[in-house]
Design a protein around this nucleic acid. Structure first.
Length: 291
DNA sequence: CCACTAACCTGTAGGC
DNA sequence: TGCCTACAGGTTAGTG
């Protein structure tokens, strides 16, 4: 499910409800997700207040009044819902199709206005995980992440530095969270199509002798930014079951140019979209207008 | 250090 | 309908 635009969509759904909410109780319905839950998670966050809900790359960051930050990665199938808030669209899909078997973590809250609420984390495949830390520097998941692609500092020059002279194909390099943080399988294919670059092209082929960013690199940086912005505006992409925290489906999948469109015509040049497998994952591209 | 593969786990879609 | 296979938005550990 969740690449940067989907995680940002979840964040925007959670923040207005959670900010200022007090955590009254924590329930873990099993000992682990992908990794064990943080030690003594319950007692370390209970009775603190959620100050803000942030995001870094594909990570949600719940900043608490006691100075700790709860980090949450959604893996492939993680989702948050407020099951008892009928005014949220979430009542339409809650409980999830498989019932409540995959609800692994929940919190009882008191909202700023005094009303009670319940936040549930469900994750069928349990590829998600959580961490708890005091300083970002001590969190192994955040250390080493590449730049936020939507930040001002991210541009062709920055991308050139990071890509350097890697021989690996662009597809693999852009999936590497140390190069750019937040891209996943969908948006790499889409960004490369916008930049008219083949996913198989060696990353080093974008370098220039002068070190000044090439036109191709400029297109790539611009393609990454624009596809992420457009996807966030559309509320992310819903393939099977992704929902924002309010339960609404994203609509960006209707605007995919190449992802999951093997055999369909390219919207730009009417070439035929192809699918190949690179390092075990599907890449979609137009062989006619991507070089 | 780099690059690729397998592994983690469950659900779903498609072929027969 | 049922069984089997392939595949799915992510990351990490292991291997060469």
């Amino acid at each position: 499910m969740p690449e940067l635009p989907e995680v940002e969509t979840v964040r925007r759904g959670l923040a207005p409800v959670l900010e200022g909410a007090r955590i009254d109780a924590v329930r873990l319905n099993r000992a682990d997700l992908r990794f064990p839950f943080p030690e003594r998670l319950d007692e370390r966050i209970r009775l603190s207040t959620i100050v803000s809900v942030g995001r870094r790359a594909k990570y949600l960051l719940f900043r608490l009044s006691n100075g700790l930050t709860l980090l949450s990665h959604l893996g492939m199938t993680g989702s948050y819902a407020f099951p008892d808030r009928p005014q949220e669209v979430s009542s339409r899909y809650y409980p999830a199709p498989q019932g409540r078997a995959h609800e692994h973590f929940e919190m009882d809250l008191t909202l700023p206005a005094g009303a009670p609420a319940r936040l549930v984390y469900a994750d069928a495949r349990r590829f998600g995980f959580m961490d708890l830390f005091e300083n970002e520097a001590e969190c192994p998941y955040l250390r080493g992440l590449g730049p936020e692609p939507l930040s001002n500092g991210f541009n062709a020059h920055e991308l050139a530095q990071r890509i350097g002279c890697k021989k690996a194909p662009l597809k693999a390099v852009l999936l590497d969270q140390r190069v750019v943080a937040g891209l996943g399988n969908i948006y790499v294919s889409e960004a490369l199509h916008r930049a008219r670059l083949l996913p198989t092209r060696p990353a080093q082929s974008l370098a220039t002798r002068s070190g000044r960013p090439s036109k191709r690199l400029e297109r790539l940086a611009a393609g990454i930014k624009s596809v992420l912005l457009d996807a966030i505006e559309a509320g992310g992409s819903t393939l099977q079951d992704f929902r924002g925290a309010g339960g609404e489906a994203g609509t960006f999948q209707q605007r995919f140019s190449v992802y999951d469109r093997e055999g369909e015509p390219c919207p730009r040049c009417s070439g035929t979209i192809r699918r190949i497998v690179q390092s075990g994952r599907s890449s979609f591209f137009c062989p006619r207008c991507q070089r």
